[in-house]
Every structure is written in C-alpha cells, then in structure tokens.
Amino acid sequence: MTKEERIENLNRLSGTDVRKCMKCGKCSGRCPAFKDMDIKPHQFVSMLCQGKIDELLECKAIWNCLSCMACVERCPRGVAPAAVVEAVRDTVVRMQGKNGIKAEEIPPIVDELIPQQLLVSAYRKYNK
C-alpha cells in the first residue's frame, strides 16, 4: 500500500471529512484522556488532513483513546476525531496481522484498571 492509498484508506475508514474541521480545539478541550496522549485529538484530525500519517501510526495515543465520543458529541462542524483515532488504530492492528480477540480470551484479563468500555470496543471491532 503506497502512502497515498494509506491516506485515502484512513479517510474512508474514518468515515469523516477531516477538511470540515475549523481548528477550534473543542475536541481536545473535552478529552478525558488528553493528559496521557502524545498526539492530541485535534492533532489527529489536522495531521490526517495534511497527510502526515507516519507519526500517527507510531503514536501511543491510539491506545489511550477511550472511544468515549466526548469529542465527537460536541464538535461544531460534525467532524469525528475519535473515528480518525479508531481508523489509525484499526490500520495499525491490521498491519500487525493480529486477528482480533475471541470471547473466551476476555474473562482472564478483566480487572478494575482496564476500563470496561475499552474491552467492549476492542471486542466489537476486532472479533472477526
């Protein structure tokens, strides 16, 4: 996959038009996981828009995003930063060839540190 195809794929996967972002920063203003992220939600959108996806693919932030959709819920331009994060995460997982998570694998790793929502979203997305 060339870089252009990767960008085009990311745009398609995210299902959102990143060019609609007016760079107001409200998404980052609402993000509960802002502190732990090396790349902030508003940066996911602007970097995908400019095609700078290499840093996105290596960043740690895609694993901190809780998919709580706080950023999507109140974006004044209808952009969905969480969807961009998810698209990047999906691409990273696919690149590693891991084939997702089976139902029986979940019980042993459940503990109060890992937010329940993370497991649900992981299962929904990666149980093929």
Binding site: K23, C24, G25, K26, C27, S28, G29, R30, C31, F34, K40, H42, Q43, A70, R74, P76
Partner: peptide, 24 residues
C-alpha cells in the same frame, strides 16, 4: 486560542476546561 470543552461547578467555583492550542 482554543475552544472550551465544558464548564462544571466544583465546590462553588466555575471550572472552565478548554484547550490552549498555541501551547498544545
């Protein structure tokens, strides 16, 4: 420069949480 994410009340004070894009 940056939009406010939310405003919440914490023991009588109005906490205005937003992003400062210049200082990221």
């Amino acid at each position: 420069k940056g939009m406010v994410g939310k405003v919440y009340n914490e023991n009588g004070k109005l906490m205005v949480q937003g992003s400062n894009l210049i200082d990221n």
